[in-house]
């Protein structure tokens, strides 16, 4: 079977993007960094193609980092191998609702 890959774009990133179809809970994914180093991790839930997983534990309120930049913050404590998306992280920009 093909290796299931997730790409970690920058060394500062705490998430990686999964580029494999039909990733299921319990599958092993190889996280590849920009130097080609591989870091195997077990994912804790199904992850659709192109979605993200946590590379390290991310405490609630910490920035989610991709491209070496903040893409929002963790809504809850996130564990290495967790699926990371709108259910457990939130954007910090364009938030008209926060000004109310």
């Amino acid at each position: 079977m093909d290796v299931k890959l997730a790409l970690r774009v920058d060394d500062l990133d705490n998430v990686a993007t999964v580029f494999a179809n039909e990733v299921k809970a319990g599958d092993e994914i190889e996280i590849r960094d920009k130097r080609g180093h591989l870091d195997p991790v077990i994912v804790h839930s199904d992850v659709p193609y192109g979605h993200k997983i946590a590379v390290v534990d991310i405490p609630k309120g910490a920035h989610i980092m991709k491209y070496g930049e903040s893409i929002g913050e963790a809504d809850v404590d996130i564990k290495r191998g967790d699926y990371v998306h709108v259910h457990n992280m939130k954007a910090l920009r364009g938030r008209g609702d926060l000004g109310k």
Binding site: I64, I71, G72, V86, A91, L92, R93
Partner: peptide
């Protein structure tokens, strides 16, 4: 975008 894995406007912008 969200179904495609983009979680925030920041992530979309940086890409």
């Amino acid at each position: 975008n969200i179904a495609g894995g983009l979680s925030s406007i920041e992530e979309k912008s940086l890409g």
